[in-house]
Amino acid sequence: MFKIKEVYDRLELVTDPEIDRPLPELGFIEDVEINGKSVMVGFRLPTYWCSPNFAFIMAEDIRDEVSELPWVTQVEINLIEHSESEKVNRGVNSFYSFEEMFSDKTDGTGLNELRHIFKVKAFYGRQERLLRYLLKNDRSKEDILELTKQTLIPFTRNDRTLEELMKSYLNIREKLNLDNSKTVKLITDEFGKPLTIEQFNDHLLHARRSRLTMEFNGHYCQTLLQTRYSLS
């Protein structure tokens, strides 16, 4: 039982790159089987045609996250009912790269660039949610731009929502290798450059577009998956 829980805890760390939400929450994890030290993770997607590059990213991330568990020696991925199931599974289970498996579908830039593009989208999406929440709670724009981890943390003590928003934002900053030390300004662009008050409104508009797109895709994909597999 505990082993299953441990596996699911690792899977919570794997997100759909387009949606920026964990796979278990989206219903993408079909099942988990544990046999001694080896783990099989079955996953499924909303359509037979979902892009293989995203499927490949998710499959690699599942493999790598579950492999982090100290007792696991082997992880087998099983993407089901997809136009490229066989290739994705064979590739990820044998540690081939996306290029090696899908040479006809890549221009040679690999999946790293794609991963980065979607990390940046997630960064702005999460930042927008945090900004919007702070504005709604009557924090001035000037104040917000000055925020550091040190000055933000005290406000999260009695505010679970804010705490969650902050954690998720700090986490994506870390993934982009941005400086999260205590006295560094947190509201920056994707390169870590702090925003100015003149940029604030425009920045918020652009970030809103990113957040909205991700939310919309999340909704679309999740309900489509429910329709496809008659869940409710």
Partner: peptide
């Protein structure tokens, strides 16, 4: 639009 056929480039 929603990717109905898989294609690396078109997908994103």
């Amino acid at each position: 639009g929603p990717t109905v056929t898989p294609l690396n480039r078109d997908a994103f």
